[in-house]
C-alpha cells in the first residue's frame, strides 16, 4: 500500500464519529435493574465448591474428568465382560477345533 493509493489516503483521513445516544447510561442501568444478578444457577455452580465453580476452567476440568472416568469405566466393563465369558469362549473355540461339523460350517480347519 503506497501513499498514492486512494484507499490508503481515504483510510488516513477517516475518523470514526460515534453516534451520540443521549440516554445510554440510563438505559443500561434500567436493563440491569430489570434483571438483577442472581446466584449461579448453572450445573457446576450448584454441584462444585465455590472456588472451583468460580474458576473459568471448571467446565474443562469437569468435562476432562468425565471423559477420563468414562474411559476407565469402558475399559473396566470390557475386562469384566471378557473375564466372565473367557472360559465359555475358549471352550467354544476349543470345541471348534475338534468338531468337524462346526469346522466345516465355519470353513475353518485346524
Amino acid at each position: 500500500m503506497n501513499d498514492q493509493d486512494p484507499l490508503a489516503l481515504l483510510l488516513k483521513k477517516w475518523r470514526h464519529q460515534p453516534r451520540e445516544v443521549p440516554d445510554f447510561n440510563r438505559s443500561v442501568w434500567a436493563r440491569l435493574q430489570a434483571k438483577p444478578a442472581t446466584e449461579d444457577s448453572s450445573l457446576p455452580g450448584r454441584l462444585l465448591p465455590f472456588p472451583l465453580a468460580s474458576t473459568r476452567w471448571a467446565m474443562s476440568v469437569a468435562a476432562s474428568l468425565l471423559v477420563l472416568l468414562s474411559l476407565a469405566a469402558g475399559s473396566g466393563a470390557a475386562f469384566a465382560y471378557e473375564s466372565i465369558n473367557r472360559d465359555e469362549r475358549m471352550a467354544s473355540a476349543y470345541a471348534r477345533t475338534i468338531d468337524p461339523l462346526q469346522m466345516t460350517s465355519s470353513h475353518a480347519h485346524r
Binding site: V67, A73, S75, A78
Partner: peptide, 18 residues
C-alpha cells in the same frame, strides 16, 4: 457435549479393550 463425548469415549474404550 461433554456427556456425548464421555459416552463415545466409554464405547471406544470398551471396544478397544475387548
Amino acid at each position: 457435549w461433554p456427556f456425548g463425548l464421555a459416552l463415545v469415549a466409554a464405547v471406544a474404550a470398551f471396544a478397544i479393550t475387548r
